[in-house]
Design a binder for these strands. Structure first.
Lengths: 182, 182
DNA sequence: GTCTATATCCTGATAGAC
DNA sequence: GTCTATCAGGATATAGAC
């Protein structure tokens, strides 16, 4: 049921999706729906938590690889983020569209900003260690890099013919090596 | 007035912004607002046209450089898209969030898909000419590259301390040369 | 051109029968 | 657990006075 809700929210937008829409999709009435879920915002909250919990875990795992170089930790963070984004695509898509129109959204934005800061720090570490270029500010690199990662939500579909691994490989290759012919 | 509308639409989301909100922001009532604009959707339509017209022009200009290499045409398309995105940031941001919930949105999505196809063709041409790597499918490269470009809308602000030129340079450098230390 | 007042519809959510 | 019926509020848009 949560899955159907998230799917509709992504298809039409959260605000443009009514509880009536969702109930119809599930094959019963609004009232029956409200017997199972306390509010519309609760559904959103659960989706945002799913996205944030998994992204946090992936980033934490990358940061915990203290034996590796900073560049390697960054690579793992990118790879991990891509994997979570694809595996939890509907929830992450919803998270990336949050604008802060309710308490739940504001809280989600705060958690997301904390994550972004951690990722920016990984980029800064890799630059300080000489792993990546230093002619561009680290925070700018971070925004562009993870902007590319997040843009996957706009077109990746589980039914697509390009596998998650292929997508993740292509993204890391282009991001780190560039797209000029070798 | 259109500018205020677009700004509010981006801040709260189109559906979450009421004509009352907009009227209050402009300092008069809903009815006065309706004297100047026929409908809420008309405001959206104008914004989407502004974004699409300028993006189309930039891409057309890049494609028209028939004397240049395909790689150079691609570079110009990227640069031109970034420039338009930053110069018409509110309108383009709105365009990038359209989900197709009304006739105006459906039409905008169609135009945007046509643009994306043209950009993908530029990438394919550059690959065929040997300018960019061929170990990754051209359509995948195109999605990742312009996904990075479009992600600028999520954080670029005209008041920011990073100039549009700096951003455009950084993006093209990272995209074409990669972010590994040279 | 701006106002007050209103029409019409849809929203999230609830009450209470079965 | 699902239903019908309903509440209270807010949405877009309009009518008509000034």
């Amino acid at each position: 049921m949560l899955r159907e809700a998230i799917e509709l929210f992504n298809l039409q937008g959260y605000d443009a999706t009514s509880m009536g829409d969702l109930a119809a999709r599930l094959g019963f009435t609004k009232s029956a729906l409200y017997h199972h879920v306390p509010s519309k915002e609760h559904l959103l909250q659960q989706a945002l938590d799913e996205a944030l919990d998994n992204l946090s875990e992936a980033v934490a795992a990358a940061r915990a690889e203290s034996a590796a170089t900073a560049l390697e930790r960054l690579r793992r963070a990118v790879r991990g983020s891509v994997d979570v984004l694809i595996e939890h695509l509907p929830a992450v898509t919803l998270l990336l569209r949050v604008r802060g129109n309710s308490p739940a959204e504001v809280a989600a934005l705060k958690r997301r900003r904390e994550l972004d800061a951690q990722l920016a720090q990984l980029v800064a570490d890799a630059a300080a260690e000489g792993g990546i270029r230093t002619d561009i500010p680290a925070d700018l690199i971070s925004r562009l890099l993870f902007g590319m990662v997040n843009s996957l939500a706009e077109w990746v579909r589980p039914s697509g013919r390009t596998s998650p691994d292929t997508i993740a490989d292509a993204l890391t290759t282009i991001a780190f090596e560039g797209l000029l012919a070798p």
